[in-house]
């Protein structure tokens, strides 16, 4: 008989996690429950759906509870006003039935290389908040995802929230998912950016890319190529060229390495020229 625990509040969830490190932690279940009837029955289930949910915005940052669904993010006017690429990415997670169940925390815990919410979090310099009975800690996403579907999440920890700082004035935010089809698709390539423009130059650049490496990554070489440069076609070309040092795409059943390499570069280049146009 599988034990099934549903905490009464967030603190209770953290306590239960400490007591049952071998239980399956289930949020929306849109990844973990695929073909559940063919999977081994877990010894116990800790159902945290609905916990750690909610979006709040203050002068410095937005805080998105880990249990916030993609649908809530997609329809958040507060997020759309300042971090529009978050709702934009949320709208492209699966389709409505997935968005109503799937959570941002679940996406983080899985940290699949094709996780649709992750490049945006990289570009927005998100911090992941973790908690256990030992206390709370915060880690940047880059340090959180340690490899192919591996994370720094401790066996007794839960993800409680994601915070994204308010972008500096004049920051261009970009997002694009290239999936196998228009909707309900797995990504072939994804890219997001935050390009901070000061006096006609890219003072700081963050590029988050997905489905082109073992985990979602920041494109460091591409960022270096952009930093300090004007958002011109020449910079765009340099960024695309530099990206080749950052990513290691593969051939698989959904696309090819060559396509991913080319298109990822094109997406980043387009971000740069779009940023140039956005600044007028």
């Amino acid at each position: 008989m599988t034990a099934y625990l549903r905490p009464t509040d967030d603190a209770h969830a953290i306590a239960l996690r400490a007591a049952h490190a071998d239980y399956l932690v289930l949020a929306g279940g849109t990844d973990l429950l695929v073909a559940a009837h063919h999977k081994p029955v877990p010894v116990g289930i800790l159902d945290i759906a609905g916990r750690f949910a909610g979006i709040s915005v203050d002068a410095d940052a937005a805080r998105i509870g880990a249990g916030t669904t993609w649908r809530a993010i997609a329809t958040s006017a507060e997020l759309a006003a300042t971090w529009p690429i978050l709702p934009a990415a949320a709208r492209e997670v699966g389709a409505l039935q997935i968005q109503t169940r799937g959570t941002i925390g679940g996406n983080l815990a899985t940290s699949s290389p094709v996780g649709d919410g992750l490049p945006v979090l990289l570009a927005l310099d998100a911090t992941i908040h973790l908690a256990s009975v030992r206390g709370a800690r915060a880690v940047p996403y880059r340090a959180f995802c340690t490899g192919y579907r591996t994370t720094a999440l401790g066996a007794d920890e839960l993800i409680t929230a994601v915070t994204v700082p308010r972008p500096a004035p004049g920051t261009y935010l970009g997002w694009r998912k290239v999936g196998t089809r228009a909707a309900q698709s797995i990504s072939k390539v994804m890219a997001a950016c935050a390009l901070e423009l000061v006096d006609g130059r890219i003072a700081a650049a963050r590029f988050g890319v997905g489905a082109v490496a073992a985990r979602p990554i920041r494109a460091a070489a591409a960022e270096a190529a952009a930093t300090g440069q004007p958002p011109t076609a020449a910079t765009a070309a340099a960024v695309a060229a530099a990206l080749r040092h950052d990513i290691t795409p593969i051939d698989d059943v959904r696309s090819t390495a060559a396509y991913r390499l080319e298109v990822a570069g094109n997406l980043l280049a387009r971000f740069v020229t779009n940023a140039g146009r956005a600044q007028g």
Partner: peptide, 11 residues
């Protein structure tokens, strides 16, 4: 059905 895809409403 994830990988052997057919058109959706959006395609």
């Amino acid at each position: 059905m994830t990988n052997c895809i057919v058109p959706t409403f959006g395609d």
